[in-house]
């Protein structure tokens, strides 16, 4: 089961993913501060938490840590999609899907039914 990120965690991951390169906490803070005031130390702490949780790896360059996500956004999304799509009937109460997939022979009957709807609409 994937655990979601907290708000600030999500914002940090989002930035690092979009930039696609290692970045320092300072860069993340500067970017965050365009939207709202946020303390440098807070971001440092949260980045450290993300590192502990294994979502970020870091290298020391000069005096600052350079942070980088351990997985791509796509890999993360793929896990998420799997989780969303794997929703078995037992857990279906949590999510409501527009439609379920169907087998090949049902599909033929389905298209025939669709034609009926269309003719009905035209009348």
């Amino acid at each position: 089961m994937l655990r979601g990120f907290g708000d600030l965690e999500a914002e940090i991951m989002d930035r690092l993913w979009s930039w696609g390169r290692p970045a320092t906490v300072r860069e993340v803070v500067d970017d965050l501060q365009r939207q709202r005031p946020v303390a440098y130390t807070t971001v440092t702490t949260v980045a450290d938490i993300l590192h502990t949780k294994g979502w970020l790896r870091r290298d020391k360059v000069g005096r600052a840590w350079l942070y980088e996500p351990t997985c791509t956004r796509e890999a993360y999304t793929a896990q998420l999609m799997h989780q969303a799509l794997e929703t078995t009937p037992d857990r279906a109460g949590a999510l409501l899907h527009f439609v379920d997939r169907m087998s090949g022979d049902e599909a033929t009957a389905l298209l025939a039914a669709l034609e009926q709807v269309k003719t009905r609409d035209e009348r």
Binding site: V99, R101, M102, A107, L111, L114, K118
Partner: peptide
């Protein structure tokens, strides 16, 4: 027909990569 065709398009689209996800159903 807009609703019905959306249902059909999604129900008959290829299954997701990685196998047996998505539950077959006569509901559609």
């Amino acid at each position: 027909s807009e609703l019905a065709s959306a249902l059909c398009a999604l129900a008959t689209s290829p299954a997701p990569p990685g196998g047996a996800l998505g539950v077959a159903s006569t509901g559609v």
